[in-house]
Simulated scan of single mutants.
Amino acid sequence: MANWNDPRTTRPGLGASQGFTGASVPRTGEVFDAGLRKHMLSIYNYMTSGVLLTGIVAMLFAQSGMAADLFVNGGLLSWVVILAPLGFVLAMSFGANRFSRGALQAMFWGFAIAMGLSLSTVFLVYTGSSIAATFFATAGAFAGLSLFGYTTKKDLSAMGTFLVMGVIGLLIAMVVNMFLQSSGLELAISFLGVLIFAGLTAYDTQRLKREYAHLRGTEFAGKAIILGALSLYLDFINMFLFLLRFMGASRE
């Protein structure tokens, strides 16, 4: 693994360390650090654009009245819309090696739109002001947690395994509560959901940072940006949805 803190410089040829312009040759660590910053910035740009696209689509679809017609009346189409984001995630995750970077980009934007259609119900249940407040609270928490994951020297790998198991436990508990309809269990699920995806935000950020050392200069590096944005997007959206259960004010 390349060491981005490695202070050693590249070995220049005779006279290469100082050209006619007087510019010095950059250190190996400096070149790596600049590439890492560019890589992570690209991931954050994709992730932020995807979240904003989802929010705009959700708001417009709800305001148009089509969301109420689709989800209130139910039917097969409503289930297609609800399950479509999962289909995109599975296809991108398991088909990354087969798809081109352009195809993954198109799928990422398609996923963001599908999520917007699926999450339009949020605007039917909660007030706009509470949604906005929760969004900005999530954005602030996400920024702090991601910064922690990027800068910490502590290895978060073990925590990642525990958190993934927690996500599986959450899914099982949510399915069980569909039959029990327990308000206490729902509150516990929401609380644990916020904690788990907060932890995953820090873990995924560190994971993406470390992966760059192996990916830089490879053909897969461009694809990794899109897949990394998908991971952070899911962390943000899930943390937002669980937090909304605490901060959201019902329209009724």
Rank of each mutant, 00 (worst) to 15 (best):
L163A: 13
I113A: 15
M115P: 01
H214N: 08
S190P: 05
L83C: 07
V72I: 07
D204L: 07
V125F: 15
Q18H: 09
M107Q: 10
I196W: 12
A133N: 14
S17G: 14
A91C: 03
S250R: 12
I168Y: 08
D6P: 01
S146D: 08
F240D: 01
R101Q: 14
I82M: 07
A249D: 03
S42M: 14
S120T: 02
G184N: 11
G22Y: 10
R98N: 06
G75R: 05
I189G: 10
F148I: 07
V57F: 12
K209I: 07
N177C: 11
Y150V: 01
V51N: 09
T151D: 06
L147S: 13
L156V: 04
F236Y: 15
S231P: 00
G193V: 01
L180C: 01
G110M: 10
A67L: 05
S120Y: 10
L52I: 13
R27G: 11
E219I: 13
L195S: 06
Y203Q: 08
T138D: 12
F220A: 10
S182A: 13
A114P: 10
V72M: 04
T138N: 14
S130V: 02
S49P: 02
F94I: 07
L145E: 09
A158W: 06
L83P: 03
F240M: 08
I82F: 13
A96S: 11
K38L: 14
I168F: 15
L36Y: 09
S190F: 06
A2S: 05
L200K: 06
V25K: 12
L119W: 09
G199V: 04
L243D: 00
L244A: 10
L104N: 06
T134W: 11
T10A: 15
V164M: 12
A67K: 02
I237N: 05
L83S: 06
L234C: 03
A143V: 09
G15S: 12
V89D: 04
A198W: 12
A103L: 10
A84N: 03
Y212W: 15
S64N: 07
F191W: 13
G144S: 11
F142T: 04
R245T: 02
A67T: 06
V164Q: 04
L117K: 07
D235H: 07
G169K: 09
A141Y: 09
I237C: 04
G50T: 00
N238S: 09
S190I: 01
F236R: 02
T201M: 15
R210W: 02
L185F: 14
F236V: 00
M174D: 11
L147K: 12
L170H: 08
T9K: 08
P7E: 04
L41E: 11
G116V: 03
L156Y: 03
S129K: 11
E30L: 08
F32Q: 07
A188V: 05
T54C: 15
T127E: 14
N73L: 04
F240R: 02
